[in-house]
Design a protein around this nucleic acid. Structure first.
Length: 610
RNA sequence: GCGGGUGUAGUUUAGUGGUAGAACUCCAGCCUUCCAAGCUGGCCGCGCGGGUUCGAUUCCCGCCACCCGCACCA
């Protein structure tokens, strides 16, 4: 899916970045030293905004559910965790940087990438059973290679290379791939073709691969050597898997249940870009929701319900298969975004990853994309990871990460032996279809009959910094309002959902030079401060103060005027005006009703299921 | 990491081989009876480091950052 930027995305981004700095939402890290790429600091308002988003997530994912508990793990963990998770291997990819076309290619992906290129199939046709079809190859060099592999050495000296290739191929074994042939065509005379790696994009010979370390490294202990190399976590999820057993044993949870965590993660991104969207230090809000393997569900309930669009996803059911749980969580996550004012269709898009895009561990992944000004990009990923992570940690740590369910054991024991065998045969057949051995399947079933299994997991993983950027860009608006003289004026306003606005309400005396107004305003301010994040402001004309609050997204302004202090009659005494950021309308409210009035309009309603 | 562009106050900008002006913002005071009013005063700047030069914000080099494109994003 290609990003669809809005009308003038860079202008909007510039305005947003500028507002974030001017008003104290987000600053560049280390700015007085020239800044530091990939790192950002949140100012007073940004810190409040982030805290509100964090709280909203924690509330809805942990506190408002009975089946999710929290965790707050260390950032630096045993390096073996990253070996087990696969990050040490996949995050330390050696890469080739092409000096000619400048493209960066993972060393272990060169062949795969080559096979996807246009030239690959046409080049393969020059290889016959008996070796090389030299005239065909010459033709290929003149046509296909000329445009698709312009930096191939054989193009500058075709005669020599073709002859050389033909001779070499005859002397080599019969199994020559098009890529081997390309090596020959990219090989300078006299050199060993096996030592040449041609760029799959342009044909130029590549220099040796260099390691790209995507994990940030440090050393634990005073001496910095390889023996105490440790990593700053590149994701928070692994801590949940590593502590799975402890949480399970200590918190009386039962499958299905989840463990949630919010925390910093670090990645050595090659190019951090787009403001805070891709940074090297970021905060994740992750949930690992553990469910039974489908086989356990089926054994226990005697049935297994797969997903269909008609299925009611409101309340979890015991017979749900993993794909229903996956859909359930996608829906839960959409409902979460709704409570913050981000809506599917308007701001968000769902993208179901295609089978060939899935990571090796994932059974299915949905990306929730947000329409950022610079393009439609991932905000949250919801992956069905099977038992990959817990199995890996069980394997590497040597500690059992299986859980035991009494009811499962009882259920299995209650079945006649023939039914158990039937069940086992079915599992063996199903697993066989996905390439697993009958022994594995049988061992799994035997464990299952004793009530033991490794839970599977659904993982909704959201970037807090991305969420902050998303709500800010969705909220940014410029509208036209009349000024004091009735002339139209452009107003910048952050239409943040009241629940996440950094300041909930500003308290303003209409005039600064009237002590009665100021005194009453201070009283109201101190009253509201006990319940809400409020700000007091008396500087400048009232209109200017409203605009200042508009720009930082404050949903309500309370103004203390002459009615409040009883100058215009008894019936209005003790009332204030509450000005609404979005409608610009004002309501008169008695001071003693202010707190409930505001709280009601700021809160997120629990269990919003629309 | 590569290529191109940019870097003067919080923001937008003017300008110069002899160290800089403006507008808006911000702060203080006066004034002000509801949407960036007015008056007075004030704070704040040549991204960093080196070189050339009597003297560099200006010229040169390096670095850093930002923007655009390429690539990358388990």
């Amino acid at each position: 899916m290609k990003p669809q930027p809005s009308a003038n995305p860079s202008i909007l981004m510039e305005k947003l970045v500028s507002l974030c700095k001017r008003r104290g939402f987000i600053y560049q890290s280390s700015e007085i030293y020239g800044g530091w790429n990939g790192f950002w600091d949140y100012g007073p308002l940004g810190a409040e905004l982030k805290r509100n988003l964090r709280d909203a997530w924690w509330k809805q994912v942990v506190h408002w559910r009975e089946d999710v508990v929290g965790l707050d793990a260390s950032i630096i963990m045993h390096p073996a965790i990253w070996k087990a998770s696969g990050h040490v291997d996949t995050f330390n990819d050696p890469m080739h940087s092409c000096p000619a076309c400048k493209k960066l290619t993972r060393a272990d992906q060169i062949l795969n990438i080559a096979q996807e290129q246009k030239w690959y199939s046409s080049l393969s046709q020059t290889l016959t059973k008996n070796g090389l079809d030299v005239p065909k190859l010459q033709k290929w060099l003149q046509r296909e290679a000329q445009s698709q592999l312009p930096n191939l050495l054989a193009i500058s000296g075709p005669e020599f290379s073709v002859e050389f290739a033909a001779k070499t191929i005859v002397t080599l074994a019969q199994q020559i791939t098009p890529f081997d042939l390309l090596r020959l065509l990219a090989c300078p005379p006299g050199e060993n073709p096996n030592s040449v790696t041609p760029c799959p994009h342009c044909g130029a010979p590549l220099p040796p691969a260099r390691p790209f370390n995507l994990m940030l490294r440090t050393h634990t202990g005073p001496i910095a050597d390889d023996s105490n190399l440790t990593y700053l976590r590149p994701e928070t999820a692994q801590a949940i898997f590593a502590q799975f057993k402890n949480v399970y044993d200590s918190s009386r949870v039962k499958v299905p249940f989840g463990i949630a965590q919010i925390g910093k993660a670090f990645r050595n991104e090659i190019t951090p870009r787009n403001f805070t969207f891709r940074s090297r230090e970021f905060e994740q809000m992750e949930l690992e929701f553990f469910i039974r393997p489908d086989e356990a569900t089926e054994l226990l309930t005697g049935k297994l319900t797969h997903y269909s669009p008609e299925l009611d996803l409101t309340e979890p059911q015991p017979d749900w298969a993993w794909d229903v749980w996956h859909h359930y969580w996608v829906r839960q996550r959409i409902l979460f975004f709704q409570t913050l004012g981000l809506h599917e269709g308007q701001h968000l898009e769902l993208y179901w990853q295609k089978p060939d895009e899935l990571a090796h561990y994932a059974k299915a992944t949905v990306d929730i994309l947000f329409r950022f000004p610079f393009g439609t990009e991932e905000l949250e990923g919801i992956a069905a990871r099977g038992d990959f992570d817990l199995s890996q940690h069980q394997l590497h740590s040597g500690k059992s990460l299986e859980i035991f369910e009494e009811e499962l054991k009882i259920k299995a024991a209650s079945l006649p032996e023939s039914d158990r065998q039937k069940f086992k045969d079915k599992v063996i057949q199903n697993w066989g279809n996905s390439g697993k051995s009958a022994e594995q399947a049988a061992a799994f079933c035997d464990k299952l009959f004793t009530g033991c299994y490794i839970p599977h997991v659904i993982e909704p993983s959201l970037g807090l910094d991305r969420l902050a950027l998303a709500v800010l860009s969705a909220a940014y608006a410029e509208d036209t309002v009349p000024d004091a003289k009735g002339n139209p004026e452009t107003r910048t306003v952050l239409r943040l959902h009241p629940s996440i606005a950094p300041i909930k309400c500003a308290v303003l005396p209409l005039l600064k030079n009237k002590p009665e107004l100021v005194a009453e305003a201070r009283r109201v301010f101190l009253l509201l401060r006990q319940h809400l994040v409020v700000e007091y402001d008396e500087a400048g004309a009232i209109g200017r103060r409203y605009r200042r609050q508009d720009e930082i997204g404050t949903p309500f302004c309370v103004t203390i005027d002459f009615d409040t202090i009883g100058e215009n009659g008894r019936e209005k005494k003790g009332t204030v005006t509450v000005r609404n950021r979005d409608t610009l309308k004002q309501e008169r409210i008695p001071i003693n009703q202010l707190v409930p009035y505001l709280l009601e309009r700021i809160a997120i309603a629990p269990n919003q299921n629309s």
